[in-house]
Design a protein around this nucleic acid. Structure first.
Lengths: 269, 269
DNA sequence: GCCGTATACTTCCCTATGGTACTTTGTATC
DNA sequence: GATACAAAGTACCATAGGGAAGTATACGGC
């Protein structure tokens, strides 16, 4: 019956405030959009209670299940929170639930052609105490030590060093070192499937070697991204770290209520 | 009928492989757990196709809607992906969908007593070019400049500098500077509700002032967390940045298939 | 005035069913 | 042999309804 936009049509972003049954967008996302929009507009403010599900069922003439899906979607997006038996409430913005995504790296590797992985060095190396601990192999057992330089448009961007598990029962294929995709970077010999991985990110100052390879001044501030990957038997397959300057890795994110979300459930974040 | 664990009961973590109707855990999370467990065990490997939804309905004797919820849950967790008309598939581990959470900061602020916010300085300051741009006010307009030190167990941890919008129509209350909680940190005078914020994180090297306040050597590597917050009219209310050493801020995360997840939908991550 | 109980309201779960739209595959036609 | 069409299989959507369990509120008895 009513929309937020003026009937004259002078508004820049017309937003329907009722369910459109002939739309190709699902009803539950439409409802979620409507509620989000109302929160955005300040109609429902943080801490306040939203209409009950039964109420929403009545006002929008949809089934309870559809309302639930919309509520769940918004809850998963961190916009609202539900309390069993009490009601649904608008969440307050919290700095702590901010998250930084490594999407930059993905874009880096997806841009075909511009990003090149150059192999600097690859050789067998008996595991010292540190490597044996990280890769869970006995000290002295041979591992593959590998150094790579990732360049973006011929500019050095990431310096990667790592140790890969060497499987003596399988021959090391030349192509294993010539990987240009992300997933291949972390597999040892035998190319096991990776089940999980641990990552940590901390600040650093580039030492002489790193600064030389990345062609930046000594003591340039940078980040170290350390990684350990495990196969499906939970055995480590690789351990290593990327070094880069913040010219190529600056993490960026947003918190709070966003305007644009995907229509699909998975599009959380 | 059958479980993954041996009937003798020697397994350390018995995991039921069928739906238990008398359990307090919802059916759809049980089903999701079962499927995740099978993926974890390598029964369904990355790239492979999962049984169709109709098939799961038959084998587990649950309704299609319940299967859908389980599938959606796993998809939201990034474990599987669905393709309309083709099927659902186990996803490969991708480094790019790793996310670093600022949970550390949250725990920092939740630990009452141990974390103290000390006010170093607070005064009015006419906006220069940079501040006027960030806060979207005219140059020369007075803003509140504020410097704070966050200590953890009497040790300096975070050095915060920022500019807050000053609302001349409202008096500045003394208590606004004495805030010790996170949300209060970023509000200007008039305490508007915050709708959204932008954050960025990059590496730095501590300068003389920062190193002195945080009591670390000069040129210590550190992180800068810059933030801008907006109110419900999308006007900036604050802009500032935290500086800290990686002793207090080391981001850590995991990628891939995890064992433990919360039972609730919201527990994505 | 205080405590236990009943009641209403709330979120949350699951079922059963029907339908839509996309994708692959098999089949008949040309 | 290639193309058009039909059919099967698939993920998705929405409905209507019944029920369980938590929470606040009103009411009675003491």
């Amino acid at each position: 019956m009513s929309t937020l936009t003026s009937p004259k049509g002078g508004s820049p972003a017309p937003f329907p405030m009722e369910i459109q049954r002939d739309s190709d967008q699902p009803v539950y996302t439409q409802l979620a959009d409507i509620l989000r929009q109302q929160i955005l507009a300040g109609i429902f403010q943080p801490g306040q209670k939203l209409p009950s599900e039964a109420m929403l069922v009545d006002t929008y003439n949809v089934s309870p299940m559809t309302v639930r899906r919309a509520i769940n979607l918004l809850a998963a997006q961190g916009i609202i929170s539900t309390a069993h038996g009490r009601g649904t409430f608008v969440k307050e913005v919290q700095l702590s639930n901010a998250a930084f995504y490594l999407q930059d790296l993905k874009e880096l590797f997806n841009s075909e052609g511009t990003t090149v992985v150059k192999l600097i060095e690859a050789r067998f190396l008996p595991a010292d105490e540190r490597v044996s601990r990280k890769l869970q192999i006995k000290p002295g057992v041979r591992a593959i030590y590998i150094r790579r330089l990732l360049t973006v448009e011929d500019q050095p961007a990431f310096y990667h060093r790592g140790y890969l598990i060497y499987d003596p029962t399988r021959p090391v294929v030349e192509s294993e070192f010539q990987v240009t995709d992300l997933k291949g970077l972390f597999r040892g010999s035998g190319n096991p499937l990776i089940k999980s991985g641990e990552l940590s990110l901390e600040a650093t100052v580039l030492n002489e070697e790193e600064a030389g390879i990345l062609q930046v001044p000594l003591h340039t501030p940078g980040m170290v991204l350390e990684h350990t990957f495990y196969d499906f038997r939970d055995k480590p397959v690789s351990w290593g770290w990327f070094v880069c300057t913040n010219q190529h890795l600056r993490l960026y994110t947003r918190v709070g209520f966003e305007q644009t979300y995907g229509t699909r459930d998975e599009r959380i974040r």
